[in-house]
Nucleic acid binder design. Sequence first.
DNA 1: GCGACTTTGTGCCTGCGTTCACAAATGGAT
DNA 2: ATCCATTTGTGAACGCAGGCACAAAGTCGC
Lengths: 271, 271
Amino acid sequence: MAVQRGRGRGGVPNSPADAVTEPMPAVRTNGANGTPGRPVAGDVRERARAIPEAAVARLAVYLRVLSAMSEQGVGTISSEELSVAAVVNSAKLRKDLSYVGSYGTRGVGYEVSVLIEEIERILGLTRNHSVAVVGIGNLGHALANYGGFPSRGFPVVALFDVDEDLMGVPVGGILVNHIDEIGQVCAARDVSIGVIATPPPAAQAVCDRLVSGGVRCILNFAPVVLQVPDDVEVRKVDLAVEMQILSFHVARRADEVALNGADVDGVVVPR
Amino acid sequence: MAVQRGRGRGGVPNSPADAVTEPMPAVRTNGANGTPGRPVAGDVRERARAIPEAAVARLAVYLRVLSAMSEQGVGTISSEELSVAAVVNSAKLRKDLSYVGSYGTRGVGYEVSVLIEEIERILGLTRNHSVAVVGIGNLGHALANYGGFPSRGFPVVALFDVDEDLMGVPVGGILVNHIDEIGQVCAARDVSIGVIATPPPAAQAVCDRLVSGGVRCILNFAPVVLQVPDDVEVRKVDLAVEMQILSFHVARRADEVALNGADVDGVVVPR
DNA sequence: GCGACTTTGTGCCTGCGTTCACAAATGGAT
DNA sequence: ATCCATTTGTGAACGCAGGCACAAAGTCGC
């Protein structure tokens, strides 16, 4: 089967994040089917316009901001207001929303409840996604107990570890199974998202088990680069990388100060 | 993922931070921020070597892979080999490394130890960056006890919470202080990176305190969009967003199956 | 010392995402 | 009913990042 081609998923940069240009996350043509090089183009045609990966990430952010707004009783909001709250350019925000559809009213703005509904639909949040957590250490515990998951449509339905002392122990209401059972249990409980919170050396093996158990989406907290088939989506949360990126900025800033003597933002040395 | 980036501009002309002949690059002016009236734009000013944010993130990954290689006794490595291990295009990898400098030998490859050293230098890992963790809940505990930080040059030097029962209690060897003391303690202990692991409602206030305490880099685990001055760098780790991005892909995949496969009703509902 | 081979470093092209700017659409006032 | 003030939605321009392909540079064998 396909080896890890250029499909370097994993959003190294926070999602970077942010202005990260991902190669082919689109919904569109591009044999995104799972079969690597197959030129099946031309059939899937216009469904939802291909949504840039970066836009998807932002939509999730808008959704949170909108939820907060809604709780505060806000019924309508303009792109300008929302963009301020979400810290993005308002044009970008409108374009992002346009991927979802046209639910705004010119001259007025968007109805918060409608926007929430539509974004949830696009993100696939209208259905539940069962989650399995592997590695019940400090982080695993925190994740298993994190109330934000179930309430948001991500019920944790399975936990795994190697520690015999944990077998059968309930954590956050779920019994812990042995990692040898990953494949079987995940298939049985229809897990769609696997979370890896193991020590680095175990991560790849756990990942392989999850994949063979039918899991196609993985959230990886272990500081390792996972090798997966093309049809598996890996997002990674890497503390070390985040810290090092910050470190880079600290260093850069220090150098600037050393050079310019002043640290007034935006002021550049004329040349 | 959206990352709020302060724009740290700054001339940063050539200037060896250490005695070497290598410039300490700045991040490319990436109009990612959303500040409307931003000047810059057509900035053609020759900045030594601007390193794209995405490249910085990848460098951190290479660094980890290289460390692993080094431990296994590998002395030399080609861009091809390294690119496979790090799951990136080899040309991209070489370009990334070129931002660091020219430390490869044509026809041979790179010396692992040299590469490690240089990447660490660029990322500013040659000096220590003191870390403060705010919010000593499940996650905060995990972070405070995470051994990966101190060993990598990120010593945790301060912990904060609101819970009176935690005051003065040692967690991972550090005594917990009250969040009212953030500003003072951070300044005193020269904290350069603040980690926010509080509940959402407290995050912004905590952030403000960190900033007023002189902290200019923040790693935010709270699911909120933080508002900060331009000269503060915020990286965020947002579980909900990550899960929702995965959810989007699950949905997309299901849709594809529904369209291409045998299912007739619009959506294939698992479970 | 010379030639063949290997691998780096990078110029250049391509494509995508961001941003601008404006026409279209809508509500409210007159 | 018409005009004005707003705000959306998007075509087009722009700029950055990714990937290709190759010349430069260095090694190794003879």
